[in-house]
């Protein structure tokens, strides 16, 4: 099937928004890193807004949107419901945070938001679990979207920490979260592709060979594997190399003292560049795997269109 760009942008930004809010919620509940909560929450809201706007433009008749509750068993209806609830929770949390009021309510909203953080990206992936399209008919697909949300959120918040509170402890914590999320993303992608290789109704349009050596090889090896998986794994590993003492002192460390790690990740400026690169890699990887999901999503038998 053709790439549905509006839906791709929707799921990508909703994942980024919910992944970011998960970390904001954890900082709220644990009482740490107060400086990144507001920018994180605003980023989350903005991402949900961009995603929702994209989905709006996907519809032929968005003015009839309230008909969408006509069948709440539908994956799209469930997706809309959980996204709306999450958006409302994050909006209220952000307003309270902005006013610096009602800390107890904020903690409860953070808890609800944290619970919804995997639920919303799961719902955006769950709509593709359809028997008509063998390459989509697996629960590994929504799990992959959840892992994607974890990666996008962790790298987004890593960047905010670099900009707002670049101390070693918080960076190390979020870097570990990014690494775990990235490993989960890589594992779920691998599991998904194994499923695709064994899916019923095999056809060349949805074969793994198309990814490995066919017309999608460049997209798969270049964007998904190299930039989307190896890139972030390398960057998180690099960020774990050696204490970033220069963050406080602002003095570059001699490359000779830390080898490649020292050369690349010694200064705060370089670490900021690495943080930006990490987020870009996560965005490229998450976008590319979604493109592939569409491109191998051929139906069992397509006759008229």
């Amino acid at each position: 099937m053709e790439i549905q760009w509006t839906l791709l942008i929707f799921s990508l930004f909703v994942s980024l928004g919910m992944g970011s809010f998960a970390i904001v919620a954890i900082t709220e509940l644990r009482g740490i890193m107060p400086g990144i909560r507001l920018p994180g929450a605003i980023t989350s809201l903005a991402a949900l807004g961009i995603g929702s706007a994209a989905s709006y433009f996907h519809l032929g008749h968005p003015e009839k949107i309230f008909h969408i509750l006509g069948n709440i068993r539908s994956g799209i209806a469930q997706e809309l419901i959980v996204t709306s609830i999450a958006s409302a929770v994050i909006f209220v949390y952000t307003v309270l945070l902005w006013k610096d009021s009602a800390p107890d309510v904020r903690r409860k909203l953070a808890l609800v938001g944290l619970i919804l953080s995997p639920v919303v990206p799961f719902a955006t992936g769950r709509i593709y679990v359809l028997a008509a399209r063998p390459a989509w008919d697996t629960w590994l697909l929504p799990l992959m979207y959840v892992a994607s949300a974890a990666v996008l959120g962790a790298f987004t918040m890593y960047l905010w920490i670099m900009l707002r509170e670049p101390d070693q402890k918080t960076l190390a914590t979020v870097n570990k979260a990014a690494l775990l999320g990235q490993v989960a993303f890589t594992v779920t992608i691998a599991a998904y592709l194994i499923y695709v290789a064994m899916a019923p109704h095999p056809h060349s349009s949805r074969s793994v060979a198309r990814l490995l050596t066919g017309d999608l090889a460049l997209l798969f090896w270049g964007a998904v594997v190299l930039i989307g998986q190896l890139g972030p794994l390398f960057l998180t590993w690099r960020n774990m190399q050696g204490p970033p003492t220069s963050l406080q002192a602002g003095v570059p460390v001699s490359p000779a003292s830390g080898g490649i790690s020292g050369a690349v990740a010694a200064t705060a400026e370089n670490r900021l560049i690495l943080a930006i690169m990490g987020l870009l890699c996560a965005l490229v990887g998450s976008t590319a795997i979604r493109m592939i999901v569409y491109l191998i999503g051929s139906s069992v038998q397509s006759y008229i269109y």
């Binding site: 032929g60 359809l130 038998q301």
Partner: peptide, 14 residues
């Protein structure tokens, strides 16, 4: 119909 095209995805026969 809101034109979400989800049914097109769900139809096995195009």
């Amino acid at each position: 119909c809101i034109g979400c095209q989800y049914c097109i995805m769900a139809c096995p026969y195009g």
